[in-house]
Simulated scan of single mutants.
Amino acid sequence: MPMNLIAYEQALRHHSVSRTIHHTGYKDSNERLEYLGDAMLNAIVAEFLFKKYPFKDEGFLTQLRSKIVSRESLNELAIKIHLNLLVEYDRKAMQNINLRNSIFGNALEAFIGAIFLDSGFDGCKRFIIDNLLRFHIDVDKLQSTETNFKGRLIEYAQKNNKPIDFVVEEIADGKNKIYQISVNFAGEIKGQAQHTSKKKAEQMAAQKSFELMNLSSEV
């Protein structure tokens, strides 16, 4: 049974609805717990993969861990376990779907941080492995899932001596910043995408370019 209810409540409170503690200036949001949960998640997933794949090298393990703990993966996990229904946030300020979805993945990390404070490392490890990795993630299938479209597109451009550039434009969306990425391949604009994360927008634009140029069989 959870004991530290205050930590769990804080884990589900986004900074858009946080309260400022006047004598310190500290905002009572889930950001500090998110930092803690991120560290726990990475360590536990790393150990899990290290034991699951005893003959795989560092590069394989690092790439697979990155897929599991990516922002997109965490957002999907938060929705699968219905954590998104419990998160407190300013719905008017977070009307952009990319902004809203990132809140849930961040809250999941904060929730993991709260579990660590409440149940220690072992309790945190049980939650991540039993409730997330084994129940909601097909780790073996994830091996073949392509996520680095930007890297593959750059590799294709270099192989064929074609210039490529990821053009960045910042768009104001109220208090939030949106990145619009346009892929300029050999002088032509191919895929475009927008996201609150610059890296995610680059990958989305690269994936659109990849599909538009029918490169799946060439890279």
Results as ranks from 00 to 15, higher is better:
162 K>G: 10
139 V>E: 09
66 S>H: 08
124 C>I: 03
119 S>T: 14
12 L>T: 05
22 H>T: 12
145 T>G: 07
28 D>I: 00
18 S>F: 04
20 T>N: 14
17 V>G: 06
76 E>N: 08
40 M>A: 04
38 D>Q: 04
134 R>W: 02
86 L>C: 13
6 I>L: 13
174 G>T: 05
156 Y>K: 05
43 A>Y: 03
120 G>N: 05
96 N>V: 04
219 V>P: 03
4 N>W: 13
168 V>H: 00
88 E>M: 13
36 L>W: 02
36 L>A: 09
41 L>E: 08
189 I>L: 13
94 M>S: 09
139 V>G: 04
205 A>D: 02
110 A>I: 00
152 R>I: 02
97 I>N: 10
43 A>E: 08
58 E>W: 11
39 A>R: 09
215 L>K: 03
138 D>W: 05
217 S>K: 01
9 E>H: 08
75 N>I: 10
12 L>N: 08
73 S>A: 14
155 E>N: 11
128 I>M: 07
137 I>S: 06
191 G>V: 10
31 E>R: 07
175 K>D: 12
141 K>H: 12
208 K>R: 11
148 N>C: 01
39 A>P: 02
105 G>K: 03
2 P>W: 09
98 N>W: 09
168 V>K: 14
164 I>A: 06
90 D>P: 13
15 H>P: 06
143 Q>V: 00
103 I>V: 09
9 E>P: 08
77 L>C: 11
207 Q>K: 12
147 T>W: 08
52 K>D: 09
168 V>D: 08
26 Y>A: 15
183 V>G: 02
167 V>D: 02
214 N>S: 09
127 F>C: 07
10 Q>I: 07
214 N>E: 05
133 L>K: 02
77 L>P: 03
165 D>A: 10
5 L>G: 10
35 Y>E: 15
173 D>C: 11
109 E>W: 12
54 P>G: 05
108 L>V: 12
55 F>A: 12
203 Q>S: 10
97 I>R: 12
133 L>P: 00
168 V>Q: 06
53 Y>R: 01
134 R>Y: 03
161 N>Q: 04
96 N>C: 02
179 Y>G: 08
201 A>M: 05
33 L>Y: 01
57 D>I: 06
83 L>K: 01
207 Q>A: 06
82 H>I: 01
160 N>Q: 15
114 A>V: 01
142 L>H: 01
146 E>F: 00
